[in-house]
Design a protein around this nucleic acid. Sequence first.
DNA 1: TAGTGGTCTAGACCACCTC
DNA 2: AGGTGGTCTAGACCACTAC
Lengths: 257, 257
Amino acid sequence: MNKQPKYRQVADALRREIDNGTYPPGSRLPSESELSARFDASRNTIRNGLNLLVTQGLVSSSQGLGYEVTKHEVFELNASRFENLEFPQNGDAYSTDVTNAGRRPHQTFRVELTPAPAYVAERLKVEEGSRAVLRFCHRFVDDVPWSTQATHYPEWLVEQGPRLTEPGDIAEGTTRYLASLGIEQVGYFDEISARMPTPEEARLLEIGAGVPVLLWTRTGFSNDRPIRCTVTTFRGDLNRMNYEIGDLSARSENEPQ
Amino acid sequence: MNKQPKYRQVADALRREIDNGTYPPGSRLPSESELSARFDASRNTIRNGLNLLVTQGLVSSSQGLGYEVTKHEVFELNASRFENLEFPQNGDAYSTDVTNAGRRPHQTFRVELTPAPAYVAERLKVEEGSRAVLRFCHRFVDDVPWSTQATHYPEWLVEQGPRLTEPGDIAEGTTRYLASLGIEQVGYFDEISARMPTPEEARLLEIGAGVPVLLWTRTGFSNDRPIRCTVTTFRGDLNRMNYEIGDLSARSENEPQ
DNA sequence: TAGTGGTCTAGACCACCTC
DNA sequence: AGGTGGTCTAGACCACTAC
């Protein structure tokens, strides 16, 4: 018989009640003082227990309002189709996907010429600190911050593709633009990892405690060298990535229901 | 000028010192009472600040020892080559990868016939609760819990491939075994997401606060239907997945250094 | 104004690790 | 034994939200 500390008992009890539907997603938990009475514990102990649930992403709290059970709608991103030239689409793939899902996309955009960070330089096979074009997107869905995307192009590419440094969008998409210049992306290398957000990421994505970020790095290659490196940061609670590989004709047949 | 609460100042100061190398990965932070004196704050306030860093995955604490700056070695998993029949390997792909990395793999294994959970049933296109073979792996690298992997096969497959229910390993790999019976996996659909671990996952993977899990679901298809669904749970701090797509001959040329 | 969570303190006692 | 973090309490005051 190993006795759990009181704040864990509180957290476990509440977790069970959340799981069994006593407190459904979107609903509010009892206040700290109510819980304090119910569990015969000091307010600090209750807060300690609630804090566990917060860092586990089960509930979120706001001053003056209380604790709310989190609810997630996940957005699916098809990474293997994304910017596949065989699936023609106007403009940027992200906006298309979001609009198709019946949501309202919105993004801010900027272009810079900056020294490539070590992580990017390594992937672009250029020297650390050598310059690269950074095209940075901060994306929202229905005004909720959704992801940031930073694409770096090595400086040597700019001579052939001067529009890369233009501050506005490239209507047909940069991949298409480069292809029209004979610089074709024939393959890419994707890396995916997860971690807790840095304070900067937490600020941009308005992430509270208990929500990790999904990091997606795509390095694109022409026939003879890397031509771009895109680092995308997603809110982990709102996004799921997928890849379709091989023959999936059996997947779409006989859709359930 | 918006004043930060004291515990955030503590966390920010320590984070800066971790970033600039004052406390390198693996080193120990000053004790709570030392920090209490340095920041002229009560021990609880210091704990509050340290707890922020813990939930952000920057440090970990253990009773009697103190706070240690976390260090990560990440293991790369090539998901597009993984179990690709064109890259022949003996036995299971995971052990091969780990051994090649100079690490020592080890796993526990069990087989069950259980009702398929809703998530899996949906992907296997069978009714929720109908039976499925579950082959479950708990994997370690150098005795550190690394990932869990649960593969479900629909019950109808067992008639054709009775060895699926055998309690031991299938030496040539299940994918190969099924292929030898004419049930070929011609494509798969991968889904990747990240979230904080459930208490059960935290227990199996020995995850502390501040470390998310990476969830990887692979549904494999034959020509006419789904034949398996594999759910893998990774420690987010130790793993990174990657996909090679298209022609990457330019990637391996001129390796840096 | 009343109720919610957010910050902070001071102090007590316990559990674990090292010497 | 002495130092470390882990748990818990009681109480104070502040900031935000709702009505």
